[in-house]
Design a protein around this nucleic acid. Structure first.
Lengths: 247, 247
DNA sequence: GCTGCGCACTGATCTAGGTCAATCGAACAC
DNA sequence: GTGTTCGATTGACCTAGATCAGTGCGCAGC
């Protein structure tokens, strides 16, 4: 929560027509929800644009008091906890447009750490303000319920007992779909995280991730060059990830 | 959602002072949230008491349209999905007082199956009504956010890569705490689910669950007799489950 | 150019837990 | 009582993936 170059009163230099940043999921949601100028007073304290965070900088740490959720504007954020034996358990990667911190509401503290993997820009949304606004904008309330509910499902995905191949395929297809939905190429993208991060996310050893990548490449499913990924056999990868991504 | 002996207009025979059933988490929440008689009109369609469901009967199935969340009044409910190879993945067990179906909001369909493990009584809460009410009762809205947020955390617990011992210990201590918080004995309780269900929940083979139970018994951590559990060395079990249950 | 550093990769082993196959035993029907 | 059934248990293997130990290699600093 200690952010560099914080801009209080977010709307200040964004122009009058853009009360939410273009990449935020809430933007559309709020517009659809009957937002109008009469809500402007709240909006002035609702959104706060911050960043850039440098690679390795923390957005918040486990135990920090919670009062805002964040939308990624650019870059990638990793959330993780450190378990009893000091091992890092990666909980998720957040791409532009995705929302971080919904799991912090219940205990009013962030239950995990969040760190930027590259140069990251964020919007902070004051949660109390958001909630207050939601009582007057049923569509916004519904959107929040929906986002929260989605995150329950996402968290459950990881928990099945799947093979290293299935996990890895699902990880790649998941990224591909998410990039595609933001208008990036679904078939060529850069991994912004290390093999170790991927492994900690998939509950594998980083060596296993290397081996699976290599085998996928040998079998013509994809091309891997360092952190560059090219999907070559989408159908086969979809097939492998079907049991995890469901449908 | 095809319920036996449904009572429409839930309040009918519950007495005027008890607009929510005593075991429902919402009961307290709504009372704290400024609930008063003026909300009575909504309440008449908000809650619907149903049951009993017999062992093995389904409350809902994957893909059913969602319009209500359920609070368990008595008995145990198991939620699960069936993966591509036909294996059952148990997502959770729900004890009296716990809420089922929050993960269905996002897609307006239940994403899993729910089946009763013994004789089950439920309250259904119409979710649209609940949400509408929440716009006028900020405390209720907050409570819903909190429940949803909690479920994200719960779903993440399973997903770590922990040993069979840790998983099993965490499962037992989790049950123990949940029973305790409902006023039951934390040290002696009956498992309402089969070894296979436990194994499918913990992502182990049922044989492994048997072996861990036996070893825990040999080491004096607990006494197991069929489905009866007695916790003997709470400290050691807490220790084993610490990395999963986190504090 | 060289050197050093940190990932990424690869190969050789090890092991936790899965799988397979019996056996046991409580609960129920008769 | 006697079967019968179905989950639980136990033992004997086996295997996916972890671990350990190098090796390779792009890149930054000089």
């Amino acid at each position: 929560m200690t952010a560099p170059s914080r801009k209080t009163g977010a709307m200040a230099d964004d122009g009058d027509d853009l009360h939410f940043c273009s990449t935020c999921a809430f933007s559309a949601a709020c517009m659809q929800s009957g937002y109008d100028k009469s809500h402007l007073k709240e909006l002035h304290v609702l959104v706060e644009h911050v960043g850039p965070f440098k690679e390795g900088e923390h957005l918040f740490r486990e135990g920090d008091p919670f009062n805002a959720i964040a939308a990624v504007r650019s870059g990638t954020v990793k959330t993780y906890v450190t378990d009893a034996n000091g091992r890092e358990q990666v909980q998720g990667f957040f791409l532009p447009g995705e929302i971080i911190g919904l799991n912090a509401i219940s205990h009013s503290r962030y239950p995990c750490n969040a760190v930027s993997l590259d140069s990251v820009l964020l919007c902070w949304f004051s949660f109390p303000t958001m909630a207050a606004l939601a009582t007057r904008m049923p569509g916004l309330q519904q959107q929040l319920f929906k986002l929260l509910s989605e995150d329950i499902g996402k968290a459950a995905l990881l928990s099945g007992n799947y093979s290293a191949d299935e996990r890895t395929a699902a990880f790649l297809m998941g990224l591909s779909r998410r990039y595609a939905s933001r208008g990036f190429s679904p078939n060529r993208f850069l991994l912004t995280m290390s093999r170790t991060d991927i492994a900690n996310y998939l509950r594998l050893a980083s060596e296993s991730v290397s081996r699976v990548f290599r085998r996928f490449q040998d079998e013509g499913l994809l091309r891997v060059d360092r952190r560059e990924i090219e999907i070559l056999d989408r159908a086969r990868l979809e097939e492998l990830s079907r049991s995890i991504l469901r449908e």
